[in-house]
């Protein structure tokens, strides 16, 4: 790319890539929906006289088996999905990032111990681990966040460790060491800023995966508890009415699909734009 484009801010560069722009647009749409949720407060208000209504002028996306407005629930579900996604990835980012950087930078037995702990977590398939944790802790939003954060933890730790391993051999890090800076200062000032981009890219991809994980935990009844809507538990409710009211499954399914697509495209775009060779 040209030197001018290199100087343009990141978001502008993202917008010039059609795929990343689409991703950004979808993510913005979900954010907007989540922000707009309080404008349509019917998500948890049943109307037992208007159950399983088809989409019409009053209920744009119809009503569910308890007479709650599907559109309100989709928007409220967006809040849950984003909240769970951001919190679980954020927690994993903080903890996993720290563990990885420390392990990679110090090496030796510190690396050995920390990374074997991460290997233990990696040894379980993500789905199984999340199911086990929520089953043990009990089903709630907080425990869903904890479970998904634990699943994400080793992934981010490994990425961070790889970066730290490479960076500590570079001349400017060696120079700081020779100048007698404390290891933590070097880690903070020289390693972290340069390791951050790949870790953030990985986190944006994990965000999409975490939203899916939340959906299936709720789908299985181990995630967000009713009456709080989540796209996963909306899908679960819809299964029994595929013959009578198929739209109950279409809309939450579409919401999950578009959100995950958005975060994945955005993650891909970020990776390309943050690549120094770009």
């Amino acid at each position: 790319m040209s030197a001018i484009a290199m100087r343009a801010p990141l978001w502008l560069r993202l917008l010039r890539d059609p795929r990343a722009a689409l991703g950004l647009g979808l993510v913005a749409l979900v954010l907007l929906g989540a922000l707009a949720a309080p404008l349509l407060p019917g998500a948890e208000t049943p109307d037992f006289m208007a159950t399983l209504a088809a989409p019409d002028a009053t209920h744009w996306l119809g009503t569910d088996d308890l007479g709650r407005d599907t559109l309100s629930r989709i928007l409220a579900g967006a809040r849950v999905s984003l909240l769970v996604g951001l919190c679980s990835v954020g927690a994993a980012l903080l903890l996993g990032g720290t563990i990885g950087l420390v392990a990679g930078f110090f090496g030796g037995w510190v690396d050995m111990v920390l990374m074997r702990l991460m290997d233990v977590l990696l040894a379980f398939p993500g789905i199984l681990l999340a199911l086990g944790i929520t089953a043990a802790l009990g089903a709630s939003v907080t425990n869903t966040v904890i479970a998904i954060a634990v699943v994400n933890l080793p992934v981010l730790a490994r990425v961070a460790r790889g970066q730290a391993l490479a960076l500590r051999e570079l001349d400017y890090v060696k120079a700081q060491r020779a100048l007698g800076f404390a290891p933590l200062t070097i880690l903070w000032r020289a390693v972290l800023p340069n390791a951050l981009s790949p870790i953030l890219v990985q986190a944006s991809v994990l965000l999409a995966a975490s939203i899916i994980t939340e959906s299936y935990l709720s789908f299985l009844g181990l995630g967000v508890q009713p009456p709080t809507p989540s796209w996963g538990n909306m899908l679960r409710d819809a299964i029994g009415f595929l013959d009578q009211a198929p739209w109950l499954a279409w809309f939450p399914g579409l919401a999950i699909f578009l959100t995950v697509l958005g975060f994945n495209l955005l993650g891909d775009g970020l990776r390309d734009r943050l690549d120094p060779r770009d």
Binding site: F48, D65, Q225, D237, G240
Partner: peptide, 29 residues
Amino acid sequence: NSPAMVRIAQILQAQAGAAGFKVELRQID
């Protein structure tokens, strides 16, 4: 976590909630 039972529980939750209870649901296998 059977759909019909969760549905009933949500009806009880709404109706008891309107009459002075604060109802939480717990799903078990």
